[in-house]
Amino acid sequence: MAEQLDLRDDVVAVPLRHPWRWISGGIATALLLSFIWAVFSAKSIQHDIVTKFLLDPRILIGMGVTVGVTVVCMFIATILATLLAVMKLSDNPLKRWLATGFIEFFRGTPLLLQIVFWGYLGIIFPQLILGVPYTEIVFLSGKTSDLIPAIVAGIIALSLNEAAYSAEIVRAGILAVDGGQVEAAKSLGMSSPYTMRRIVLPQAMRVIIPPMGNEFIGMLKNTSLLQVIAVAELYTAASTISSANLAQIELLMVSGFWYLVMTTVLGFPQRALERRYGRGFEVVGGRSAPRAFKVGKR
């Protein structure tokens, strides 16, 4: 009976306490602060040079090239990746083999090697001719180095390589969509391409976006490899300046700072996209869906 409640039963419950979290967190913060202090107090680093070149026009133009190349490459790579993923899931064995071959080839060789290869294309094929073979019809012809300048070679190299990696991400996303969805779409008379476009891919996006955010950040940083074929992106701009004034560390800090800013800013559109494609999946009465795995306190 509630009225005859024994006072010994009237106890308070407290959640598990975590003293080690505070202690380990304190140690980590102290280490981090001392590292930052070491960098800023180092006599060998001329901080005035860092601040002077932070907004240097050459650095800012380099950043523009980095962002431009990244966006163009990811755009091309995403389209190619979707095509490759669909091909790899096709019933047609020829399409499957082609896609698998492409993916294996571009994942299996170093990115740096691929960039140099595209950069040196002009040495292998000095002339490029686009036309109908064995006829006089020529749409386009010229010196390879004119038709494919370094920046285009770099974009080709990064896009093809990225497409190979992203294809597997897109394929995983497509496979994550329940088979019943395709059956329902078929039963309504939808064609396969329509089903892919309107039913499967929008649902696959939920699974695709987080790893693609990773790829985007990876791409942003990999554009620095284009230095080897002299594309004037951020890292190339910084190293050109430092080879003149010999302030290598300072200019590494300048470019490092801007890479960090750019990758941080990229997180915002990713979260917006995740919300957009998470619609219909999150709620039952405003609560977020239960997570199978939770780390730390809520």
Partner: peptide
């Protein structure tokens, strides 16, 4: 298939649409 409707055991509604 357009003239044949089908209803499934597990509904198979498109979750990303209202």
């Amino acid at each position: 298939r357009q003239s044949i409707g089908m209803v499934f055991q597990r509904f198979n509604l498109f979750p990303h649409m209202t």
